[in-house]
Design a protein around this nucleic acid. Sequence first.
DNA 1: ATGAAAGCGCTAACAG
DNA 2: CTGTTAGCGCTTTCAT
Lengths: 336, 336
Amino acid sequence: MEKQSVTIYTVAREARVSMATVSRVVNGNPNVKPATRQKVLDVIKKLNYRPNAVARGLASKKTTTVGVVIPEITNAYFAELAQGIDDIATMYKYNIVLTNTDVGGQKTVQVVRGLLAKQVDGIIYMGRDVSDELREELDSSTVPVVVAGSVTNDDKLPTVRIDYRNATRQAVERLVNAIHEPVAMVVGAKNRKIYTDYYLKGYQEALKNTGMNFDDQLVFEANESYDQAYKLAPAILQCGAKAAFVTGDDMAAGLLNGLTDAGIKVPNEFQIISGHDTKETRLVRPMLTSITQPLYDIGAVSMRLLTKLMDKKDQNAADESDVLLEHGFSVRQSTR
Amino acid sequence: MEKQSVTIYTVAREARVSMATVSRVVNGNPNVKPATRQKVLDVIKKLNYRPNAVARGLASKKTTTVGVVIPEITNAYFAELAQGIDDIATMYKYNIVLTNTDVGGQKTVQVVRGLLAKQVDGIIYMGRDVSDELREELDSSTVPVVVAGSVTNDDKLPTVRIDYRNATRQAVERLVNAIHEPVAMVVGAKNRKIYTDYYLKGYQEALKNTGMNFDDQLVFEANESYDQAYKLAPAILQCGAKAAFVTGDDMAAGLLNGLTDAGIKVPNEFQIISGHDTKETRLVRPMLTSITQPLYDIGAVSMRLLTKLMDKKDQNAADESDVLLEHGFSVRQSTR
DNA sequence: ATGAAAGCGCTAACAG
DNA sequence: CTGTTAGCGCTTTCAT
C-alpha cells in the first residue's frame, strides 16, 4: 500500500547513518567519506528513494523553480521565446513552470500570485503592461522578475528585447521608400507602453525622415489576432495605405490573407513587413518579409539574467536592466 | 528587510486567535464564527498575508497542482489542447505547470521525475510512447496520469482522443475516391504505437475498401517537422502518389508549400488532407482540408477525467479509460 | 566526517 | 466554534 513512503529517514536508518548525512549525499556536499557516500547511494537506489521537492523547498526556502508567464500559449512568438528560456533553465538546474494568462490579462494577477505562493525563485514575465494590482503583488515580494521579448510600463523591471523603436522606424522607412505612398501600422493595442513609446515613436520618426505626414487613422489595432487583422483588410485598403508594418506575425498573416482573399496582390499592390519573425512568416504565401529577432536568444539571455538576479551575489546584474539584442531584416515575398 | 515573513503564526497572534483558526479561515472552513472570521480576514489584509503553498503542500500532502507534459511547445496542436486543460484546471482550482520535453523525448523522464518530485497531484501526458524508464517512474508513484490527444504504448493509461484509425480511414478513402490514384501518408514516426495501431491500420483499411494495394513506399516519416515535410515533396511526387493524408498540420503545411514551390498545383495536381485542425490549416494557401478535432474539448475532458482520478472517490472513473471524442472533416482548399 | 536537534509554514486530528 | 499538539520531509547550524 504505502507506496513512495520512503523518506530521507528511511534511507538513513537503512544505511545506518543520520538524516544529515543522507542529505549531504543527496545534495552533493563533499563532506562525506567516500565509503559512506557509496553506502548511502546504494540504499537510495535499492529503496528507489526520491527527494521530496516540497519538503526541500520548505526547509531551504528555495525551490529552484522559476515561473514563466505567457499571455497566449497559442502564439508562436512566446513559444519560441520559451524554448530559449527552457534550455538555459535546464542548464542552470532550474525547473520552469509555464503559466498562461489568457488574452484578456485579467488572470495575470492570479497567475503571478499563484507563482509567488509556490515560492518560485524568479519570474520571467512576457505579459502585457503591469497593472497597479500586479505591481503591488510584485512589490510585496522579493522575487526577481525579468521581462522577456517585450517592454512594460514598469521601468524598474529588467528587460531583454530588441530595439523596437528603431526596428519599427527602419521597417516603415523601407516601406515608404519603396512605394512613396501612405504606410499603415497594425498593432495589438494602442494603450500599451510598447505602443506609445516604441512602435508609435518609431513610426513617426520614419514618417518624418521620409517626409510623410502622420495620420492616426493609419494606425490600426487588431488585438494580436489573426481574425481581427483579417477583417481589417478592407479598412486598411480604404484608408489609402499601400503598405503596412504589422507588429506581430499572427496579425500580419491575417492581414495578408485578408488582402489576398479580397483580390489584392501582395506585394505588387500592397506590401507588408511583419515584426516577430516566427515560423509563421514562412508558412504563408507569399512569405512575409519581417524584422528578424533572435527569439531563442532573447529567451536564453532573459533566463541567464534571471539566474544572476537569483544568486544575489550578482546584485549589480540588475544594472544590465535593459538588454538590447540585435535585430535585422529578412526580405521575403511580401515586399518588393 | 524581512519582507514577506508574515506567516500564519503572525496573523494568529495579531488576531488573537490560534493558528488553527487562521488556517480554517484561509481554507474556507465553515466552522468559524463570522465575527472571528472577519477579524482574521482584516488582519490578513492588513498584514498582506499570503499562504505559503509549499508549506501547505508539505502538511497536507496535496499541492493542487497538475503537471502537463508537452513534447514541443512550438506545436500549435499541443498549445490548443493546453488551452482546454488550463480552463478546466482553473475551474477546479488546480494550478497547472506546463513542461516541455523537447522533440527528442530524452528529456521526458527527467521532466516527469521533476514533476513527481514536486508532488504534483496528477499528470496530463501528451508525449510520445512511454519508455521503459518512464513507465518505471510512473509505476513507482501513485499519481494518476491521463494521456491527452494521443495514444501511447502503455495501455493502462487512460486516454482522451479521437478515433485515429477511423479518421485516417475516412480521410484516405475520401482521397482515393476522389482521384483513384495512389495516396501517400505522411506521419511523424513509424515506430510509435499511434502509427502501427492506428494510422497504419486505418490507411490499410481504406486501401482495402477502395481496392488499392498497400505499398510501404507510400508512407513517409517527417518527424512532425515542417522542414522535413517540405523536403519530402519531390520524393512523394516521385512515388506516384497524387494525394496524401498527413497526420500533423506542421507537416501538412510543409508538404503543401514544398509542392507549391515545386510548381505543383494543389488541389488540382495533388490533394492533401491534414489531421490536426489547428489554426495553421487556415493560415496557408490553399487552406488545408482537415480532419476536425475538438482540440479544446480533448484538453478539457482530459483534465476533467484527471480531477476525478485525483479525487479517489471516483476510482471507477478509471473505467472511462479510453474516451473517444467525435471528429469530422472540414473541406477547405487542398482537396476538390 | 558525522550526528542531534531545531525548525521551515502549514494542516489535521483531537480535545474541549 | 476554537485551541493544542503533532508532525509533513527535508535543510541546517552547532557540536563532536
